[in-house]
């Protein structure tokens, strides 16, 4: 019994290490300059549209509602202390430091990450990746690299849009509905939000999440068992692992930045 458990533990350990090795090789292979420069540009632009622009709606709508909820919840607490003038500060700091990078990364994993995994898994199952290899075209450069860079560029921008729309949503509820003074809302926010401490740190978080989510999504697709069950498992695994990685890394980054 103990033997079997040890064997199973060992097998999982070996699987994890080989998986990590393959993921590393995938990233290195994709990022190695291939001297194809300009030929990759149209592919990158297309992926920026698919990964970034097509994720805009979910980011904008979620950002708006989260900003509105933050403002409503914040107001009911702050008004008890007569501190509702600080509503702008609370909404902005919550969004810039935490909710903007984290929630947009979670949404990105669900919307774009899962789509990347499914697309690459299907390309593998209908032999498109193999046919690229046989045409002497490296799929790591043709398929993986443009999607990776598109993810890295898109998520920090989506996160910035999320926070901006969230602040506007907070203003809508706090100022236009609940009657907080508009001057106080903006001036307290302006006085308390620091460029380095809040905006740059939020951007760094977002960049780290972009690398992790896109990498996981591409690796899971490229490594998927090329059957319908395999692709479905890979897609689920992308969302679960990316979400856990985002939340775990968020704690580590927050501890390093603000701890």
């Amino acid at each position: 019994m103990l033997d079997k458990r040890l064997q199973s533990l060992g097998r999982h350990g070996v699987d994890f290490i080989t998986g990590a090795g393959r993921a590393g090789a995938l990233l290195i292979g994709a990022l190695k300059p291939a001297g194809r420069g300009l030929k990759l540009l149209p592919l990158l632009i297309k992926q920026l549209y698919i990964v970034g622009v097509q994720s805009l709606i979910i980011i904008v709508v979620s950002g708006l509602f989260i900003g509105m909820v933050l403002s409503l919840q914040g107001y009911t607490i702050l008004v008890g202390y007569g501190a509702e003038q600080s509503l702008g500060q609370m909404v902005a700091l919550s969004l810039l430091r935490e909710l903007g990078p984290v929630v947009s990364a979670l949404l990105f994993a669900g919307r774009a990450g899962s789509a990347l995994t499914a697309e690459i898994g299907l390309m593998k199952s209908n032999e498109q990746l193999s046919s690229l290899e046989m045409m002497a075209i490296d799929p790591l450069h043709q398929v993986i690299a443009p999607r990776f860079w598109a993810g890295i560029i898109s998520l920090p921008l989506l996160s910035a849009i999320f926070s901006t729309v969230g602040i506007l949503g907070g203003h809508l509820v706090g100022v236009d509905w609940l009657g907080v003074d508009t001057g106080a809302f903006w001036s307290v926010m302006q006085a308390s939000v620091e460029w380095q401490e809040d905006i740059v740190n939020g951007g760094i978080k977002s960049l780290v999440f972009a690398v992790v989510v896109t990498w996981i999504a591409l690796h899971k697709g490229y490594d998927a068992v090329p059957t319908s069950e395999g692709i479905s498992k890979a897609t689920t695994s992308t969302v679960v692992q990316s979400s856990l990685a985002i939340l775990g890394l968020d704690f580590v980054l927050t501890a390093l930045m603000f701890g």
């Binding site: 209908n126 032999e127 498109q128 046919s131 290899e133 046989m134 045409m135 002497a136 490296d138």
Partner: peptide, 23 residues
């Protein structure tokens, strides 16, 4: 190695069972 392999493959063509056209 990988580079030589890609060079050699330029002299090969392969018709896959599924066709593998880019959709």
């Amino acid at each position: 190695n990988r580079k030589q392999l890609y060079k050699v493959r330029r002299k090969m063509g392969m018709l896959f069972q599924s066709g593998a056209l880019f959709t």
